[in-house]
Amino acid sequence: MSNIPNELKYTKSHEWIRVEDDGSLTIGVTDHAQEALGDVVFLELPEAGRSVNAGEACAVIESVKAASDIYAPVAGEIIAANQDVADAPESVNADAYANWLFKLQPANAADIDALMDAAGYAAEIAQA
C-alpha cells in the first residue's frame, strides 16, 4: 500500500503538492509513482523562471523501466529546482515525499483547491 500523506494535495498524474506558508508550491512524485516506475536513474527538472500552464509537462523522470513526464499541477512560474535530487535521482525511491523536484509560484492560488486531497488520490489509484 502506498504512503499518502494527508497534508498534501495530489494530481491524477501522480504529483504531490505541498502548499508553503508563502503561497508557493513544492512538487514531487508520489510514493505510488516511484513504486510503479522502479529504480529512478535520471531526472530532468525545469529551470527557474519558466512559466508553465496547468497540466503542462515540465520535467522528466526516468527509471530502468520507462521515462515519464512530470506535469505542472497549476499554472505559474517555476521558482526553484532541486539540484540535489537531480544529482541523486535514486533518492526519490528512498523517500518520495522528502525529495521534492521543483517549486512553483501559482498564478492563481484558487487553482490549488481543484487538486485532489489524500482520500481522493487513494480512490484514484485504487481504480487503476
Score class of each variant (00 low, 15 high):
50 R>L: 15
46 P>L: 04
59 A>N: 01
29 V>R: 00
121 Y>L: 12
121 Y>A: 09
75 A>V: 06
102 F>H: 04
66 A>F: 04
34 Q>G: 06
85 V>R: 00
51 S>W: 04
116 M>E: 10
107 A>K: 14
94 A>W: 00
128 A>L: 13
28 G>K: 03
76 G>E: 12
120 G>V: 03
98 A>L: 13
53 N>W: 00
24 S>A: 15
20 E>I: 04
117 D>N: 15
120 G>D: 09
80 A>L: 10
88 A>M: 08
29 V>I: 15
71 Y>A: 09
124 E>A: 14
53 N>M: 13
34 Q>E: 13
67 A>T: 08
61 I>Y: 03
37 L>V: 08
76 G>S: 09
61 I>K: 03
71 Y>N: 06
23 G>M: 12
1 M>E: 11
16 W>Y: 13
29 V>L: 07
21 D>C: 01
96 A>V: 01
30 T>A: 09
112 I>M: 10
117 D>E: 12
30 T>Q: 09
102 F>D: 09
128 A>N: 11
119 A>V: 05
104 L>Y: 04
112 I>T: 09
82 N>T: 07
4 I>C: 08
96 A>Y: 02
97 Y>D: 00
114 A>K: 13
71 Y>L: 09
75 A>Q: 06
4 I>Q: 06
96 A>K: 08
2 S>I: 00
19 V>E: 12
120 G>S: 11
40 V>N: 01
109 A>Y: 00
13 S>V: 09
93 N>F: 08
5 P>Y: 02
93 N>R: 07
63 S>F: 12
55 G>V: 07
126 A>H: 08
39 D>I: 12
21 D>P: 03
55 G>L: 02
102 F>G: 07
10 Y>H: 04
38 G>C: 06
108 N>G: 00
63 S>W: 11
81 A>M: 01
20 E>A: 13
115 L>K: 03
79 I>P: 03
93 N>P: 01
103 K>V: 04
78 I>Y: 04
12 K>G: 04
20 E>C: 12
77 E>N: 13
27 I>F: 05
50 R>N: 13
12 K>F: 00
8 L>Q: 01
118 A>W: 06
14 H>T: 10
64 V>W: 07
25 L>H: 05
25 L>A: 03
34 Q>C: 05
69 D>G: 13
94 A>L: 14
91 S>T: 14
81 A>E: 14
70 I>K: 05
63 S>V: 07
60 V>T: 15
117 D>G: 09
90 E>M: 10
80 A>F: 11
128 A>R: 13
61 I>T: 12
73 P>R: 07
41 V>W: 08
24 S>W: 06
123 A>K: 15
23 G>L: 11
107 A>Q: 12
9 K>F: 09
10 Y>G: 04
29 V>Q: 02
74 V>W: 01
22 D>K: 11
34 Q>D: 07
10 Y>I: 06
21 D>S: 14
33 A>V: 08
98 A>Q: 14
121 Y>P: 08
32 H>P: 02
22 D>P: 08
97 Y>S: 01
65 K>G: 06
20 E>V: 02
65 K>F: 02
50 R>V: 15
56 E>C: 03
1 M>N: 10
77 E>T: 15
119 A>H: 08
18 R>C: 09
101 L>P: 02
113 D>I: 02
89 P>M: 11
77 E>Q: 15
